[in-house]
């Protein structure tokens, strides 16, 4: 190399950090697998049981039962729709309170975020069992569980969007003599509305999948039928439920995500 060039070239930054990070990630992976009892050999040793189960699930499919799946599946989708809708409505004011560029009261932001995190920590299934205990068996408990679950999801993502808005538009509304409500209406909502709707649709997609399981604890929908036929070891009927649900989820995901692409 040219001597002058070599003199000007800065000292190469140390790569130690990069290698140590990779080492750390590998260590975490291996130790997690070890602690949770994950064993690759066990998978291979039991693989024939898996094939046997697959065989009884799908070969042949219980077509004659298909008609009975549609009703509970529709109920599941309805639960997901109502749950996402209620969750979204509750999420917006919560997100506004949690966003530190709108309400500049640190205590309020932190308090709100704690509440949101609390709701997000509880799995939907646990929420559903709690509400089944309160409201009894049926889809209402499921709807309440999904509402709270969507609330946690949508409010978290929405408040992060509010914090990422272009603050110049807020300045403009303040300079016009606007109050907090004006700032919300003219500077914040127009900027976050597409994202907010997109998060609501995303919550709906997640809810359709979650709702399918909720019935397992008695919270209505297609999950309840899963439970019945699994208990009776009628795997062919479980199989047809899985297939039809899979197609329904695919269609819903496709429609929802194509709307979302157009939103943002």
């Amino acid at each position: 190399m040219n001597q002058d060039l070599e003199k000007k070239l800065p000292i190469r930054p140390s790569r130690t950090k990069f290698y140590s990070n990779i080492g750390l990630i590998i260590a975490i992976l291996i130790s997690s697998a070890w602690f949770s009892g994950f064993n690759v050999f066990e998978i291979f040793a039991n693989i024939r049981f898996a094939f046997r189960l697959l065989n009884s699930l799908f070969f042949p499919p219980a077509w004659d039962y298909a008609d009975n799946v549609i009703g509970p599946l529709l109920e599941t989708v309805q639960m997901a729709i109502v749950g996402s809708f209620v969750g979204a409505i509750l999420a917006f004011p919560a997100a506004v309170l949690a966003a530190n560029n709108f309400i500049k009261v640190k205590g309020l932001n932190t308090g709100m975020r704690l509440i949101l995190n609390f709701f997000r920590t509880i799995p939907a299934l646990v929420l559903a069992s709690l509400f089944v205990a309160i409201f009894g068996i049926g889809s209402f408990a499921g709807i309440v569980a999904l509402s709270i679950f969507s609330f946690g999801l949508i409010s978290k993502m929405t408040y992060e969007s509010i914090e990422a808005i272009d603050y110049g538009q807020v300045e403009a509304i303040i300079s016009l003599g606007g109050n907090k409500m004006n700032v919300l209406r003219y500077a914040i909502i127009p900027q976050v509305l597409p994202q907010y709707m997109s998060y609501t649709l995303y919550a709906f997609e997640v809810n359709v999948r979650a709702a399918a399981v909720l019935g397992y604890v008695g919270a209505g929908g297609v999950g309840q039928t899963y439970q019945i036929w699994l208990d009776l070891r009628r795997f062919d009927r479980v199989g047809i439920i899985i297939m039809i649900s899979f197609v329904a989820v695919l269609i819903i995901d496709f429609i929802s995500s194509s709307i979302r692409r157009r939103l943002v």
């Binding site: 110049g168 500077a187 900027q191 509305l193």
Partner: peptide, 9 residues
Amino acid sequence: FQNFNIIKR
């Protein structure tokens, strides 16, 4: 403002 700060939507 430099970035106009009108409400684009």
